[in-house]
Simulated scan of single mutants.
Amino acid sequence: MSLSRAPRRTLLAVGVLSAALTLSACGGDSNGKSGGGGNTNFVTNTGGIATAPKGERAATGKLAGETLDGEQLDVADLKGKVVVLNVWGSWCAPCRAEAPHFAKVAKDLEGKGVEFVGLNTRDPNKQPALAFEEDYGVTYPSLYDPQGKLILFGFPKGTLSPQSIPSTVVLDKEGRIAARSLMALNEEKLRSMIDPLLKEK
């Protein structure tokens, strides 16, 4: 590698890291505004949950990789089911607050056409994240995304993308982005994002 290329690669790496850090840590932006601009018709209810009309939903980018348990997971393989994607970190207090609700709803809806997938981010190693899952009874898989690359590149610009930690994005049965919350959720609000999509034909 030439010396002239080294700084360029370093700058690129710093740029990616800086972009990852723009996710507001443990943020509570509940205004539900769309991220990325463009022609968006998102509807935000008073609970801070934004939804996209059925005919105007976008597909995600690639959301695949290694889970905290060392398995390979590709969210695209879950098409045909409603998929709940939860962005979390073991260090995040609001994530800890919502974790019991996610664990309960995931267990209640097991085998009923819903799959939960966590996106674990900013944990520099897996141990704290694995301990978090054990402490809160989280049994569904989480993709390990310490630098936030899946979060940055898995959601196209102008879609209901996760912009804080925690964030929750729910995909419809076609794998399209249907709803998003940028705050910690209780059981009632989480179910309010899932139930309408389960009823869709």
Results as ranks from 00 to 15, higher is better:
Tyr136Asp: 10
Ile165His: 06
Asn45Trp: 07
Ser142Pro: 03
Gly37Leu: 01
Val170Leu: 11
Thr121Ala: 06
Tyr144Cys: 05
Glu200Trp: 04
Leu109His: 02
Leu12His: 14
Ile177Pro: 06
Thr51Glu: 14
Ile177Val: 02
Arg5Thr: 04
Glu200Ser: 07
Pro94Glu: 13
Thr67Lys: 09
Gly47Cys: 14
Thr22Glu: 12
Pro162Ile: 00
Arg122Phe: 09
Asp123Val: 01
Met193Cys: 02
Glu71Cys: 06
Asp108Cys: 09
Leu171His: 01
Asp195Trp: 03
Asp69Asn: 15
Asp108Ser: 12
Gln127Lys: 15
Gly154Tyr: 01
Leu85Ile: 12
Gly89Pro: 09
Glu188Val: 12
Pro141Met: 02
Phe155His: 03
Glu110Lys: 14
Lys157Asp: 11
Leu182Gly: 15
Pro94Phe: 05
Leu17Asn: 11
Met1Pro: 02
Val117Ile: 02
Pro128Glu: 05
Gly37Lys: 07
Ala184Tyr: 11
Val82Ala: 11
Asp77Met: 03
Asp123Leu: 06
Asp123Glu: 10
Val170Arg: 11
Thr60Phe: 06
Gly55Ile: 07
Asp69Thr: 10
Val170Asn: 07
Ala179Ile: 07
Leu182Tyr: 12
Gly113Ala: 06
Phe153His: 11
Asp145Lys: 02
Ala103His: 10
Gly32Met: 00
Glu66Met: 03
Gly113Met: 04
Ala178Ser: 03
Glu56Trp: 08
Ala25Arg: 15
Pro146Met: 11
Leu171Tyr: 01
Arg176Leu: 05
Lys199Leu: 01
Lys62Pro: 00
Ala59Glu: 09
Ala19Pro: 05
Ser164Phe: 03
Arg180Ile: 05
Leu190His: 12
Lys62Asp: 01
Ile151Gln: 10
Ile194Val: 02
Tyr144Glu: 09
Lys199Phe: 04
Glu187Lys: 11
Val82Ile: 09
Asp135Gly: 10
Arg176Tyr: 06
Leu152Thr: 08
Gly137Ser: 10
Gly137Cys: 11
